[in-house]
């Protein structure tokens, strides 16, 4: 479960990106965080992903209170979270397979086992045939799917996704959303921040809307 209580995120200069936000996301849920550009969607995602610390309030992810967590414990928390960034943050100097291998290298999995799992993740997102391709050679949709493969290869319990369909055509966007739905179906909690919430056929999505850092009722 993810639970935020009276969360505030204030940046240097006094700008408040998140203002007194409280929410609960049940384990295994699929949530869309909507709102206009600058509403605080990405900031909220970063707080949940322990990329940034809240200024005040409390935030519990997977039973751990992030506001009290020591810096040295953050990497181990992040290993249980799958992060898909708005700009994917792929490594362009290595092929697709090695991009997906990185999280497994970090946890020190034996190479053969890591390769097996990375290929399985690529297979899930339909990129197994392109394991040797460098990201530059992949289309926008394929790059997004590669980023998803990297995010899920560690079998995270929570998947945090930032604007996954922002630069994709309708077909690619549908493929990507279907993938998230598939991961959610096997019990992964999926939190998607998007400025243009879409329907996913067959999925009952909850929508949390932010407006100038505040959660709308």
């Amino acid at each position: 479960m993810i639970a935020g209580s009276h969360l505030v995120k204030r940046y240097l200069g006094g700008f408040e990106a998140i203002r007194d936000v409280s929410f609960e996301i049940a384990a295994g849920a699929m949530i869309l965080i909507g709102g206009h550009s600058g509403a605080g969607k990405t900031t909220l995602l970063k707080l949940i992903g322990a990329i940034e610390r809240p200024t005040s309030g409390s935030l519990i992810v997977g039973g751990q209170n992030l506001t009290a967590l020591r810096n040295s414990a953050l990497p181990f928390l992040r290993r249980n979270l799958g992060l898909v960034f708005q700009n994917q943050k792929l490594l362009f100097d290595r092929p697709a397979l090695e991009n997906v291998l990185l999280p497994l290298e970090i946890i020190g999995l034996p190479l053969r086992e890591a390769q097996r799992r990375a290929r399985a993740a690529l297979d899930k997102v339909g990129l197994l045939a392109r394991e040797k391709a460098y990201p530059i050679a992949l289309s926008g949709g394929e790059q997004q799917r590669l980023a998803i493969a990297r995010a899920v290869v560690n079998r995270p319990s929570v998947l945090l996704v930032d604007e996954p369909t922002a630069n994709l055509d309708e077909g690619s966007a549908r493929q990507v959303l279907d993938l998230f739905a598939a991961f959610n179906q096997v019990g992964v909690t999926v939190v998607i921040a998007t400025h243009a919430p879409r329907e996913i056929p067959g999925r009952d999505l909850r929508l949390m809307t932010l407006d100038h850092g505040q959660l709308l009722p």
């Binding site: 992060l83 943050k89 970090i106 946890i107 560690n154």
Partner: peptide, 16 residues
């Protein structure tokens, strides 16, 4: 730098 940033975001420790 890019690889370091990504590695940090997906759970790499400073030691790694």
């Amino acid at each position: 730098a890019e690889e370091i940033e990504v590695a940090r975001l997906i759970g790499a420790t400073d030691a790694f």
